[in-house]
Every structure is written in structure tokens, then in C-alpha cells.
């Protein structure tokens, strides 16, 4: 039965069909708890869409809208204050040094659709980022970049924040150079929002 829900939900997302996505969630909630629905249906469907993005069979606009629709569905089932969302390290996400927000929004919505809560810093420059991360006691920082020079400056972010904070990177420069994330001192790199969900699930488990 779960497989059927995953397939239906994934197809609804790829067709950008909000009504069917909601219908599947309502139907599934008769059989599972909200948290179980997120874990067993939403996350696997988004993972499959993420794999499609990596192999070129799914387009970025579909990935983005899938995240948005899933986020709406999950917010209705699992409000931001739900206790299921709170058992996790403090996380923040930001676009580093430019105004291209799409990648960050995809990861943000995918993580929220998977039941995580995180601070959204929007666009940040070096000094502002360092202060906010320290003030908010962030343990896991996700950084998205579009431009190569910004990606290279994450090395400086790592130096300023030290090794206790986990830094996860993503964005075009990292997709085109598999070794770049290691060079800048990140703990991990996600090629898609779905990969980011997998990384965060693993890291959250390690930290707690």
C-alpha cells in the first residue's frame, strides 16, 4: 500500500497537481500518522524526484514545485510547532554572497517537507553569516552558492566557525566539480534537495 501512495504522490508532484497530492495525503492519513506519512511517502517520493534531477530526467522547475507542494501538504499535517519536528540539532540555511535563491529554497522546502525545522537566513555575506551562526548557536549550516568565487570563500567560513559546526554545501560549482566541497572544508555536499535530506538525517543522528 505504501508503494502505491509513493507512486501516486510522486506522479502528482511531477505533474504539479496540488489537488491530487492533497488527496493522497488525506487518504494516507487514514492509515498512518502524519510523521509516518512524511517518512514513508513524502521523503521517498522527493528522493526519487531528486534522483531524476541528477540523471537529467526531471527538470529543476519540477523539483522546485514538488518541494513547494510537499511543504504545503506537510505543513497542513505537521504544523511547525509539532513535537515531531523539534528533536533535531539547530540548523540554518543561507545563500552565500549572491541573490540566486532557488537552490536554497528547494533544499529548505524539501527539509521542511521531510519534517525538519531550520532557520532561513536568506542572502548573507561573510560577517553577517558568522555572527548569526554564533548568536543562534547553530550546529548544522547549509550553504548554497551559484558563483565559483563564493564557493571558494566557504573555506574562510570554515576557518572562522571552527570544526564543531557541520557545514553542508550545494549549488552549481559543486555539481560541476566533485572535489570542490572537500577543498573548501565542508562536511558534505548535496547535489539535490533529496540528497540534502539524506545528509541531514545522517548528521542529525550523529549529533544527537
Amino acid at each position: 500500500m505504501i508503494k502505491k501512495f509513493v507512486n501516486e504522490f510522486e506522479q502528482a508532484l511531477l505533474k504539479l497537481d496540488r489537488l491530487t497530492a492533497r488527496r493522497v495525503s488525506v487518504e494516507a492519513s487514514r492509515h498512518f500518522t502524519a510523521a509516518k506519512f512524511v517518512e514513508k511517502v513524502v521523503t521517498p517520493a522527493l528522493e526519487r524526484i531528486g534522483l531524476g534531477w541528477e540523471d537529467g530526467s526531471v527538470a529543476l522547475s519540477q523539483v522546485y514545485m514538488s518541494g513547494r507542494i510537499s511543504e504545503e501538504v506537510v505543513d497542513a499535517l505537521l504544523p511547525p510547532s509539532a513535537p515531531e519536528r523539534t528533536d533535531q540539532p539547530r540548523m540554518a540555511i543561507a545563500v552565500f554572497e549572491d541573490h540566486h535563491m532557488l537552490g536554497k529554497r528547494i533544499v529548505y522546502t524539501m527539509l521542511r517537507a521531510s519534517g525538519f525545522e531550520l532557520l532561513d537566513y536568506g542572502h548573507v555575506e561573510m560577517e553577517g553569516l558568522i555572527h548569526r551562526v554564533k548568536d543562534d548557536d547553530v550546529r548544522v549550516l547549509l550553504l548554497s552558492t551559484l558563483m565559483l568565487p563564493s564557493a571558494l570563500r566557504i573555506k574562510e567560513v570554515r576557518r572562522r566557525l571552527g570544526d564543531d559546526i557541520k557545514i553542508i554545501v550545494g549549488g552549481a560549482p559543486f555539481r560541476f566539480d566533485d572535489e570542490l566541497w572537500v577543498e573548501v572544508g565542508a562536511d558534505a555536499m548535496g547535489k539535490s534537495g533529496a540528497e540534502a535530506v539524506g545528509i541531514i538525517t545522517r548528521i542529525a543522528g550523529d549529533i544527537s
Binding site: 504539479l16 522547475s61 522546485y64 514545485m65 513547494r68 541573490h99 540566486h100 535563491m101 532557488l102 529554497r105
Partner: peptide, 15 residues
């Protein structure tokens, strides 16, 4: 429009 209005807003406008 990616530069005129941001990628996310543009995708939503298109749809």
C-alpha cells in the same frame, strides 16, 4: 526573468 525577478518567483509566475 531569472535575474529580473528571481528564479523561484519566475517559476511560480510561469505556472
Amino acid at each position: 526573468p531569472v535575474m529580473q525577478m528571481g528564479f523561484d518567483n519566475y517559476i511560480e509566475l510561469m505556472l
